[in-house]
Amino acid sequence: MAGIDIGIDLGTANVQMVVDDKGIVLNEPSVVAVDNRIDEVIAVGNDAYRMIGRTPKEIEAIRPMMNGVISDYDNAEKMLRGFISIIGEKKGMGKIVMPRIMVSVPSKINDIEKKAVEDATRQAGAREVLLIEEPIAAAIGAGIDITKPGGHLVVDIGGGTTDVAVISLGGTVLSKSIKIAGNKFDEDIRRYIKRNYNVMIGERTAERIKKDIGCAYSRQEERFVKITGRDLASGLPKAITVSSIEIMDAMSISVGQICNLVISALQDTPPELASDIADTGIVLTGGGALLYGMDKKISEITGLVVRLADDPISCVVRGTAIALSSVEILEMAGTV
């Protein structure tokens, strides 16, 4: 199928795609599995994710995205090509030929990193590639009318980066970014378990702990989860039980750094826009925004109302779809 538009949220943890009027057609982990004996992709997305930590030495499950940018160009291109093929097959669109693609990128991406995204997307089959900053896409996807002369503060907590942006009149007035987000939370949990229990756990187990009992703000009732890892003393499997209070402590420094980033953005915001933000509050988007109590924590630190966007995980990709239908307006604002 030729002549279609595809919006892509090319995330560190997940890739989401939206196609014209079909809505979100793909949401799968940013993972590609490669058979190194023949240098061939054998799986992408969910199928490849299930292989992490479980492959023989000849097969490698790779995350080609790191901190919101491409870290492995060749495998990023193969992953994108695989995903485009998947949505063609699963959605009954047949072979997708030379689509126009808009890709979201972190606000502080440099020219070399931008070119890597553009080139990989073209090599995956795009006839035209447009880039949009993640906070802009997130704001649009969250239902904010960014074309009006009023200040909005968006905090997009993804897998690899947290982007904070003040948006007005269709453009970014101020933006800040930090390489701390969902994946760093997982890393914090793994380090805590290793340091305090002398047990090694995998990234999938850490992610499950985060989703089940993780929190940025104290829960009303403490929660517990039982997990199994490898005892570093004996080398044997060992079951342990950890609490939500422990996991909150494990992630506290990273959560604090995100809060400090928001404070820094507010301190640098022009007075008139700061007044607008005091009225409209802060909007949270991205998968990391779903961490229990993140909205309460940022509200406590800033003294402002913090709103969790509807379906925060898909705000960015939904924003790319809307932006594709208004490219001319956004180009005039210098947004794409």
Rank of each mutant, 00 (worst) to 15 (best):
residue 1 M to L: 14
residue 1 M to E: 13
residue 3 G to K: 14
residue 3 G to W: 08
residue 4 I to Y: 09
residue 6 I to L: 00
residue 8 I to F: 04
residue 9 D to P: 04
residue 9 D to W: 04
residue 14 N to W: 00
residue 16 Q to S: 14
residue 18 V to N: 08
residue 20 D to R: 09
residue 23 G to C: 08
residue 25 V to S: 06
residue 26 L to W: 02
residue 34 V to Q: 00
residue 36 N to V: 04
residue 39 D to T: 09
residue 42 I to L: 08
residue 46 N to E: 15
residue 50 R to G: 01
residue 51 M to F: 07
residue 53 G to I: 02
residue 53 G to S: 11
residue 54 R to W: 06
residue 55 T to E: 11
residue 59 I to M: 06
residue 62 I to H: 08
residue 72 D to H: 15
residue 90 K to E: 15
residue 95 K to N: 11
residue 98 M to T: 11
residue 101 I to F: 02
residue 106 P to Y: 04
residue 111 D to Q: 11
residue 113 E to G: 02
residue 118 E to I: 14
residue 130 L to S: 02
residue 135 P to A: 02
residue 137 A to Q: 03
residue 140 I to H: 07
residue 143 G to V: 04
residue 146 I to H: 04
residue 148 K to Y: 07
residue 149 P to T: 03
residue 150 G to S: 08
residue 152 H to D: 10
residue 155 V to M: 12
residue 156 D to W: 07
residue 165 A to C: 09
residue 168 S to L: 03
residue 169 L to K: 13
residue 171 G to C: 10
residue 179 K to E: 13
residue 182 G to M: 07
residue 182 G to R: 06
residue 183 N to Q: 15
residue 184 K to P: 00
residue 186 D to G: 10
residue 186 D to N: 15
residue 188 D to C: 15
residue 188 D to P: 01
residue 190 R to W: 01
residue 192 Y to H: 14
residue 193 I to G: 02
residue 193 I to S: 03
residue 202 G to H: 10
residue 203 E to G: 07
residue 204 R to D: 13
residue 204 R to Y: 11
residue 205 T to D: 12
residue 205 T to N: 08
residue 205 T to K: 09
residue 206 A to C: 08
residue 206 A to Q: 05
residue 214 G to R: 04
residue 214 G to S: 07
residue 226 K to R: 12
residue 233 A to Q: 10
residue 235 G to H: 11
residue 235 G to C: 08
residue 238 K to W: 05
residue 243 S to N: 09
residue 244 S to H: 10
residue 245 I to K: 13
residue 253 I to A: 13
residue 255 V to E: 03
residue 257 Q to C: 03
residue 257 Q to K: 14
residue 259 C to S: 15
residue 260 N to Q: 15
residue 261 L to D: 08
residue 262 V to E: 07
residue 268 D to V: 11
residue 271 P to M: 10
residue 272 E to N: 14
residue 276 D to G: 08
residue 279 D to H: 15
residue 283 V to D: 09
residue 287 G to L: 09
residue 289 A to T: 07
residue 291 L to G: 06
residue 292 Y to V: 11
residue 296 K to L: 12
residue 306 V to I: 06
residue 308 L to V: 13
residue 309 A to C: 07
residue 316 V to L: 04
residue 317 V to Q: 01
residue 318 R to Y: 04
residue 318 R to P: 00
residue 319 G to R: 01
residue 320 T to G: 07
residue 321 A to K: 12
residue 329 I to C: 06
residue 335 T to V: 12
